[in-house]
Amino acid sequence: MADLASTARIPNVASAVLGDLAGGFHDAIREGDGEAVASVAAFVASSLARAGEELGLGAVRRVAIVGEQRAVVVALSGGVVVTVRVEPPGALGAVEKALDASIGRGG
């Protein structure tokens, strides 16, 4: 999962950012402000994790945000947070599948 370069090569991935659940920034590809993206993604993930915990849904694994112009996927695994911008948003399903495969391979 932490192989950001291969994630960024998935078709329709406009940018990819590697961070952690504490909001730390590690790397970015085609994203000018990876630090801000990583911190916001971590905040979103932790807020949703809190909601999920209260509802007994277990650990949050992935968040997909869909808008008119683009979609964003925040994938979580072992404290690592990968945030991927998808353009156009219609490609989200294919990108999520590719991300799943990537997580399955790289953990």
């Binding site: 993206v37 916001v40 949703l48 909601a51 999920g52 509802l55 007994g56 849904l57 277990g58 650990a59 949050v60 694994r61 992935r62 968040v63 997909a64 945000i65 869909v66 808008g67 008119e68 112009q69 683009r70 964003v72």
Partner: peptide
């Protein structure tokens, strides 16, 4: 903050979804 035009957000958890 990052996506003003969001329409849906799907969160997948180990045991469910929001």
């Amino acid at each position: 903050l990052q996506q003003e035009d969001w329409e849906t957000v799907t969160a997948q958890y180990a045991d469910g979804k929001i």
